[in-house]
Design a binder for these strands. Structure first.
Length: 931
DNA sequence: GCTCTCACG
DNA sequence: GACGTACGTGAGAGCA
């Protein structure tokens, strides 16, 4: 029988059900594998109570659950900022969406969604059709956006309050009848959905205006008549925006929808599928309830297999066997592999090259793995030699031509439908990029491990293989040897190379299979997907860009340092009375404390005297020698580490210095820079700072440095909830002076630099997990005095102490701490006895602050390439709270504006800090000048 | 390969 | 009551 008069249609707003269920319930997980199921459970309960509700007068004859298919709809084409403010989905919610669909089907209810349209549009369309056919409609939702549909046979039902919403309730809410609701919404806008509306006009005013003028178009046409100047301007100036807003809130009740009303007829719940689903979800209570109602036996709960440790389960292992490894030396074999990769949709990839330096390395071979235990190696650049000192430049016969293989693999490596899996993918990404291939999309087992296990273990492949697969990888040294006799991979015999390289791909694939489901369980999917993985191409491009370093400047400095050092050395020998190696702390200690018998010599664990800068500074008042050594040391450091070593890092092809950033180098989430380290180029001393003059921009370009001001202290003010510090940051007040003023009761106007310096030391101390001893040493004051400062600080800012003890307690309970963005840093030593616990406590206090700052700049970096794509500018370096750009002179201002916005807004929309983040800009021909 | 020292945030 | 402490890194030089 066709839908018509006497029929009653119930439309359930599925997405609203899900969110409601998610927020109403604790984060339940499925016992057997830890999959989050809280929202699914709540959804099923809501759905079940709808199905069994006893509202006789409105019992449905037809029923459907309507879902949102995705986040992009036709409204995004009308207004690209639509719903742009939406916070990111909780990571344990997204994977549950699919199960809410399955649940709906299992309960034998029609499950409807359509790409490009919101659930609300589908509801509007069904409602209109049902009315036209002569039936009535109840929308199960309390969403105000659906209220425009109410009236004339359509009503709403708030499922939580079990309250009917009719025309009267809509008028109560919007001040107008349902048919004018969209006009009011268009004027008032909606901050949640980011519908602009008219500024300064809310629902009340909007309703008043619509009441007076009848409808929106009339109102806009006669806006000039409005007496209140502000309202008049708001409407006149924003007429177009208001019209756009109306198109955003107006539901489409005539969208293409090829499901007939008849298909929605209520069907009895069938026991078998629903019991199977509930059993699969392991919902014991609901299973029981449903089985009782349907008068069927509940399935017996199978013994669930709970893994031992949430974070480190052991996978069932297939043995490693070289018999499963294949050499690819024909195009036919390669084509077979490509077919298999395309069929499965993912592949583990690894490259073998001649060097660890990606900018110099040449491709020697590629390994692939699709199914655990079966991997292949494509030798491409193996050469004769080994025994021969020089080897031969001739390729070993039987290898496929590099160009042919790359041409065949490029479509696979760049195919959006094929996931490329690697261990430390940034390396392989750069290698392939140099051969014209840009890998995407990708997964990286090293980054997965880091997201889950930061602070617990390393993330190198050999360590991961041992830990998770119980398999010891073939050591690379067994192929290359070590020391002087070390060879490069292109000199390794192909048979050995196959075993080694194929194993790498095999291990990587197995790790990926193991890690993928664990990410969810450890609640770090969002961290991995938004803070780790997207960094790979961003950093790869920065590293490949490099920074121009002027060799002559460095070389001149080296010479000057060498001369000065020679002079100092002679003077030191003379003062010491004996010749000795100034660079040897051991010899220096013996001279200072034995020969010259200076006071305070302390021997460390190894029995050597400590001769660090702090010790020598204290001794400088006693004798001439320590001061001279300090001067010599400074020059020696500058020369060896910077002016000499940097020259060796200038790439002969590009003339630039290409560092390598380690994404997993620091447990807190900071990057680390190696080969060379460009994150510790001198700046604090005047002499050292000049080294930055060697970092230059090419002709016609300049360097722009953008750095976050006091980012860690701002984050501290936010997380520890210190209102006075938050306000100070909002007002742009000197934060150290303010701290000093609060602590020592000195008015800001009378602040001295010494008092401010002490407050600054305390502020930093807090970030590091302050101790009386540490502060005393830093400020060179008695320990009791330092402790007094700290006590007073905690008195003035009680939130800080609370933050510190809460953080330590959290770490002790959970074994990790978290950043505001959810990054986990494990603290395995936190419950240890002895001094280790002290270290762990301070690290636990520091990690959320340092880590959150690291997350913020990561987010900025990830968004930066798209933001500056139209500018002649490149992001070159990151130094923890600073980004360095190279930009054409004409575009400096444009770059600063865009990049500054990205950096200052980097926490949004995931986190809304209670303090502003501010970024300071510097421009110059050299890095020194850009500061 | 380990230790010390020192450069940075 | 002593222990030993500011947090996070990487690199060069000396020394065994």
């Amino acid at each position: 029988m066709a839908f018509g008069k006497g029929n009653h249609l119930h439309l359930i707003d599925g997405s609203a059900f899900i969110f409601r269920a998610y927020h109403a319930l604790p984060p339940l997980t499925r016992k057997s594998d830890g999959m989050p199921v809280g929202a699914v459970a709540g959804f099923c309960n809501l759905l079940w109570s709808e199905l069994t509700a006893t509202r006789k007068e409105t019992a449905p004859t037809h029923l459907a659950v309507i879902f949102d298919a995705g986040s992009i709809t036709f409204r995004n084409a009308i207004y690209d900022q639509y719903k742009a403010n939406r916070p990111e989905l909780p990571e344990d919610l997204r994977p549950q969406f699919i199960y809410t669909r399955k649940a709906t089907t299992a309960f034998n209810v029609a499950c409807i969604e359509q790409d490009g349209y919101e659930a609300d549009d589908i509801i509007a369309t069904f409602a209109r059709r049902a009315r036209e056919a002569g039936g009535t409609v109840t929308i199960i939702s309390s969403d105000k956006d659906l209220m425009q549909l109410v009236g004339d046979g359509v009503d709403m039902l708030d499922p939580m309050k079990n309250k009917r919403l009719g025309v009267d309730e809509v008028i109560e809410k919007f001040g107008v009848k349902p048919n004018r609701v969209v006009d009011v919404q268009a004027l008032a806008g909606d901050s949640v959905d980011n519908v602009p509306g008219a500024p300064g006009i809310g629902i009340k005013t909007a309703a008043l205006l619509i009441e007076e003028y009848g409808d929106l178009e009339t109102l806009l046409a006669r806006a000039g008549e409005i007496k209140q100047p502000k309202r008049r301007e708001a409407l006149v100036d924003n007429a177009e925006l208001i019209r756009i807003s109306k198109r955003l809130v107006q539901l489409d009740d005539d969208m293409p929808l090829d499901v007939s009303l008849d298909a929605l007829e209520v069907k009895p719940v069938e026991a078998e599928p629903v019991m199977a689903f509930l059993h699969e979800m392991e919902f014991t209570t609901l299973t029981k309830r449903v089985s009782e109602r349907l008068k069927v036996a509940a399935p017996v709960a199978a013994a669930v297999n709970v893994p031992e440790a949430e974070d480190a389960p052991q996978a069932e292992q297939l043995p490693f066997d070289v018999a499963g490894y294949e050499k690819i030396d024909t195009m036919a074999a390669l084509d077979r592999w490509i077919a298999r990769i395309t069929e499965v949709g993912h592949v583990a990839v690894d490259t073998e090259t001649t060097s660890l330096n990606e900018m110099l390395a040449e491709l020697v071979g590629i390994s692939l793995c699709v199914d655990a235990g079966q991997a292949a190696y494509i030798p491409l650049g193996h050469k004769q030699g080994g025994g021969d000192l020089f080897g031969s430049s001739e390729l070993v016969a039987g290898q496929l031509p590099l160009d042919d293989v790359l041409a065949a693999l490029k479509p696979v490596l760049e195919d959006a439908a094929i996931l490329k899996i690697g261990q430390n993918m940034k390396y392989d990404w750069k290698i392939f990029a140099r051969y014209g291939v840009e890998i995407a999309p990708l997964d990286d087992t090293m980054l997965m491990s880091s997201a889950m296990q930061a602070g617990l273990n390393g993330h190198g492949m050999d360590a991961l293989s041992e830990k998770y697969l119980g398999h010891t990888c073939i050591p690379i040294k067994s192929l290359l040897g070590s020391g002087k006799a070390q060879i490069t991979f292109d000199r390794v015999g192909i048979d050995d190379a196959v075993k080694y390289a194929a194993e790498d791909a095999d291990v990587t694939l197995r790790l990926w299979q193991l890690f993928k489901p664990q990410l969810h369980r450890a609640r770090v999917t969002t961290v991995y997907e938004t803070l780790e993985r997207p960094l790979v191409p961003v950093l790869a491009r920065m590293e490949m860009a490099g920074v121009q370093v002027d060799r002559d400047t460095l070389s001149r400095m080296s010479n000057a340092f060498a001369q000065k050092m020679a002079g100092l050395e002679a003077e030191i020998q003379e003062v010491a009375g004996v010749p000795f190696n100034v660079g040897s702390p051991k010899q220096l200690g013996e001279i200072l404390f034995d020969k010259l018998a200076l006071p305070g010599g302390e021997k460390g664990k190894t029995g050597a005297y400590a001769t660090g800068a702090d010790v020598l500074e204290d001794l400088a008042t006693e004798h001439k020698l320590p001061g001279l050594v300090l001067d010599w040391r400074q020059l020696s450091k500058l020369k060896s580490t910077y002016t000499d070593a940097l020259q060796d890092h200038i790439n002969p092809d590009t003339g630039r210095v290409h560092t390598s950033y380690s994404i997993t180098g620091a447990v807190t989430g900071r990057l680390a820079s190696t080969d060379p380290n460009l994150q510790n180029i001198p700046i604090r001393s005047e002499e050292g700072r000049r080294i930055r003059e060697a970092f230059v921009a090419p002709k016609g370009k300049v360097l722009v440095s953008l750095d976050y001001s006091q980012i860690e202290l701002r984050i501290l003010a936010h997380v520890a909830e210190i209102p006075s510090l938050q306000q100070a940051f909002k007002d742009g007040i000197d934060i150290h002076a303010l701290t000093a003023s609060e602590m020592f009761n000195v008015p800001l106007a009378e602040m001295t630099s010494d008092i401010r310096r002490r407050a600054k030391a305390i502020n930093f101390g807090v970030i590091y997990g302050i101790s009386g001893f540490g502060l005393a040493r830093n400020l060179r004051i008695p320990r009791a005095e330092a402790q007094g400062f700290i006590d007073r600080y905690f008195e003035r800012f009680p939130g800080i102490k609370e933050y510190m003890s809460d953080t330590v307690a959290f770490a002790q309970k959970n074994g990790f701490v978290q950043t505001l963005f959810g990054r986990k840093i494990h603290t395995p030593e936190i419950n240890a006895k002895g001094p280790g616990a002290g270290f762990a406590k301070r690290a636990a206090i520091n990690a959320p602050i340092q880590g959150t700052a690291a997350d913020v700049i990561r987010r900025a970096m990830i968004r930066m390439p798209a933001a500056i794509a139209d500018l002649p500018a490149k992001m070159l370096l990151q130094v923890h709270d600073e980004l360095l750009f190279e930009v054409e002179e004409a575009a400096v201002e444009a770059l600063i504006k865009v990049a500054k916005d990205v950096m200052e807004g980097a926490s949004h929309p995931a986190v809304h800090l209670k303090v502003p983040l501010t970024v300071e800009a510097g421009v110059g021909a050299t890095w020194a000048a850009a500061h």
